[in-house]
Write a protein that binds this DNA or RNA. Structure first.
Length: 686
RNA sequence: GCCGACGUAGCUCAGCUGGUAGAGCAGCUGAUUCGUAAUCAGCAGGUCACGGGUUCGAAUCCCGUCGUCGGCUCCA
């Protein structure tokens, strides 16, 4: 497990993208400094091969560094050898990294001459570097770094000499939008990594190899947990029996936990009319993430009505046009005088038209159905279905809801990013006074789960809104945003939970907390979420009657401590490397018989039946393979416990126990072993 | 969605610069009766992702589509 450490970095990416002050840069660790210097050497090498290359940014990142370059030649991994050879030369020459401080004008002058991020003056200016200079605040020192002929605009810091770079390797080339904005052109991003010694570099790649063995896509296939089939569709995983078994266990866990915490379970359909998502406010903010709607045929009455409206609207449009033509011919002021009556009628028509249009839209909207991308609107309808009193609150609706999101094709990734998912969802409705207790209880639920699964490295991200994006990305309720964010921040502070605040990442309906964890592959994922919603209860006109006999709007929390089955199990596969604890193990016990004598088989089957009668997922391998072969196959499938049963065991009323990863534990009384197994499952032992 | 790479039997992979497919494992059949990580033999498995094109001839070269992967953007 120790090799997990290298991927863990508690700084969220988004914050790294912010401009670093010179003070922050000075805090660069030794390894970051080394990698940053290697990025300069990379640029030097690329320029030796392609002098026209234009460089943008070249920072150190979690496991290495990159440099963004604009170059007509498409750099491919086949070019790496050539580039690395140039880099080695540069390192061998052992140039010092010299820092030079220049005035803004000197910097601009060099940039215009194409001398920044270059080996010499060039015809084309260093366009990206010039832009960076523009963005350096007035008071700040502008510095250049030189190694050999290469001069770059750079705040540093660097290692002393290129020769200090002990070992490096280019890893991949990908594209990246300039400044991370989709609207900007794409640059080529060359990635590499560097270490002080060759051994550290080799160890790093060794660790990557180890990590690959845990990849949930690889293990998921080998262990027969899930499949993705092209005919079913991209991002639509199907669960094989072994995967479904894990799902069953997670649901059991969630249902027990939620029941004990006072939740009640509800069930809702997978689709809903467009009108529901108009009401919830999802359509303007979320439509891109939803599958396109299904259009149903109107029923004849509605169709007739719609056709009628269409005709009426057409007529009105013509009338208005005719009036407008007249008025523009005469000039409005005169028209108003002469045709006051007509003008009034025009206004009337306009109003009528608006009404008719909205009626027609409503009819159309009622014939359009969406696959649900979230469960909240359905749950809100359930809240509204029955008159609620303050005595009913908090009310906690839980459902393992099935949702469909139309994720962009490039986002799909094994089980971690899919288009169909089942969420450990619940919506909690409460009075403002109950908020703190409820919110805390949800956070505690996560922590309890994480302890159970042995998830030690995680980060709570508190996402808030960006006031400049009210009405676009976030509902336009400035005051309520402030209030709920303040409320949430206070709860977090007083509970003492560690968290980082991430601006501009809230849900459209309110601030949220995501719990981020790292897969062994080095990717970060939100696996759990806890979101405040002040917007939807208003939109759905949810109310409860308070003590003072006044209708009030409840506050809502959306929460999913176990996230979705897809992502959570993807995460668990990598977390456990497929070696699930007994309670989660898809196949908990496999009985391996030595030989196939009828008496022995009877004895073995009786034990199988006993296990199954206690809901233990048990199988028997009564094939004619040799015992070593049976063991090999069971071990490969990572079956948790094996009962090896031969004549000797049968005569002693025993089984020989073998546990995956632990080997042969010797013969034990079968009754005792079963009791042990049952208690391990019941207690969900690690 | 964007840029790039890749796509050969259920799985893991061979298949040179074009001459119309091969191994191991898994599967099936039979033999083997074996005490803690593979008993032996035989059989069967492929429209080389899909659709066009170049060519006497395409798994191999070109174009397009789909999918997967590495990133970017986005997210549970």
């Amino acid at each position: 497990m120790s090799f997990l450490v290298f991927v863990v970095n508690f700084t969220p990416n988004r914050m790294q993208e912010d401009r670093k002050t010179p003070e922050m840069r000075a805090q660069m660790t030794d390894i970051e400094r080394l990698r940053h210097s290697t990025a300069h050497v990379l640029a030097t090498a690329i320029l030796k091969i392609w002098p026209e290359a234009q460089f943008a940014a070249g920072p150190p990142v979690d496991n290495g560094f990159y440099y963004d370059v604009d170059l007509p030649h498409r750099i491919s991994p086949e070019d790496f050898e050539k580039i690395e050879a140039e880099m080695k030369k540069e390192i061998k020459e052992n140039h010092p990294f010299e820092r030079m401080e220049v005035s803004r004008d000197e910097a601009l002058d060099l940039g215009k001459k194409g001398r920044l991020a270059a080996l010499s003056d060039r015809e084309q200016p260093s366009k990206f570097k010039l832009e960076i200079i523009e963005n350096i605040p007035p008071g700040e020192t502008i510095s250049l770094y030189r190694n050999g002929d290469f001069i770059d605009l750079c705040a540093g810091p660097h290692v002393m000499r290129t020769g200090n770079i002990g070992a490096f390797k280019l890893t991949t080339v990908a594209s990246a939008y300039y400044k991370g904005d989709e609207k900007n052109p794409q640059l080529q991003r060359v990635y590499g990594t560097a270490f002080k010694t060759k051994k550290e570099l080799d160890d790093y790649f060794g660790m990557l190899e180890e990590a690959k063995k845990r990849d949930h896509r690889k293990l998921g296939k080998e262990l027969e947990i899930f499949v993705l089939d092209d005919d079913v569709g991209p991002g639509l995983p199907m669960w094989l029996p072994r995967g479904a078994a894990i799902i069953e266990e997670l649901e059991k866990l969630a249902k027990e936990t939620e029941f004990a915490a006072g939740y009640v379970r509800v069930r809702t359909p997978h689709i809903a009319r467009e009108s529901l998502y108009k009401k919830s406010g999802h359509l303007p903010y979320y439509a891109d993430s939803m599958f396109p709607p299904m259009e149903l045929k109107y029923d004849p009455a509605e169709e007739h009505q719609a056709a009628g409206l269409e005709a009426t609207i057409g007529k009105k449009m013509e009338q208005i046009k005719a009036f407008e033509n007249i008025f523009t011919g005469l000039g409005m002021e005169e028209a108003a005088k002469d045709h006051r009556e007509s003008l009034q009628r025009l206004e009337e028509n306009k109003r009528e038209l608006a009404t008719l249009n909205s009626k027609r839209n409503e009819i159309l909207s009622r014939s359009r159905y969406y696959l649900k991308a979230m469960n909240c609107p359905h749950h809100h309808k359930l809240f509204a279905a029955v008159p609620r009193s303050y005595r009913d609150l908090p009310l906690r609706f839980a459902e393992y809801g099935t949702c469909y999101r139309y994720e962009q094709s490039g986002e799909l990734f094994g089980l971690m990013r899919v288009r169909s998912m089942q969420m450990n969802d619940a919506h909690l409705y409460m009075t403002p006074e109950q908020f703190e207790t409820e919110f805390n209880a949800v956070n505690e639920m996560y922590l309890k789960y994480f302890k159970l699964f042995g998830i030690g490295k995680y980060l709570m991200r508190f996402s808030t809104h960006d006031p400049t994006k009210l009405g676009q990305k976030f509902v336009d309720e400035s005051e309520l945003w402030k209030q709920t964010e303040e409320m949430t921040r206070n709860v977090l502070k007083s509970s003492g939970i560690n968290y980082v605040e991430v601006p501009n990442e809230a849900a459209f309906y309110g601030p949220k907390i995501d719990v981020q964890a790292w897969s062994v592959i080095g990717r970060e994922f939100s696996i759990a979420t806890n979101q405040v919603d002040f917007a939807q209860p208003r939109r759905f006109d949810l109310r409860y009657k308070d003590r003072d006999n006044v209708d009030k709007i409840p506050l809502c929390i959306h929460r999913a401590p176990l996230g979705t089955h897809e992502r959570f199990i993807g995460f668990l596969i990598e977390h456990y490397a497929g070696n699930f604890p007994l309670w989660l193990s898809p196949e908990q016990v496999r009985i391996l018989t030595i030989g196939d004598e009828p008496q022995l088989l009877d004895y073995s089957r009786a034990i199988l039946d006993e296990l199954r009668s206690h809901q233990v997922r048990a199988e028997i391998d009564a094939s004619t393979d040799k015992i070593n072969g049976k063991i090999q196959r069971a071990e490969q499938m990572k079956v948790h416990t094996m009962f090896v049963i031969g004549k000797r065991d049968m005569e002693a009323n025993a089984v020989s126990v073998r546990v995956h990863g632990k080997g042969n534990l010797g013969a034990k009384s079968s009754d005792e072993v079963i009791v042990d197994i049952l208690s391990s499952i019941k207690e969900r032992r690690a």
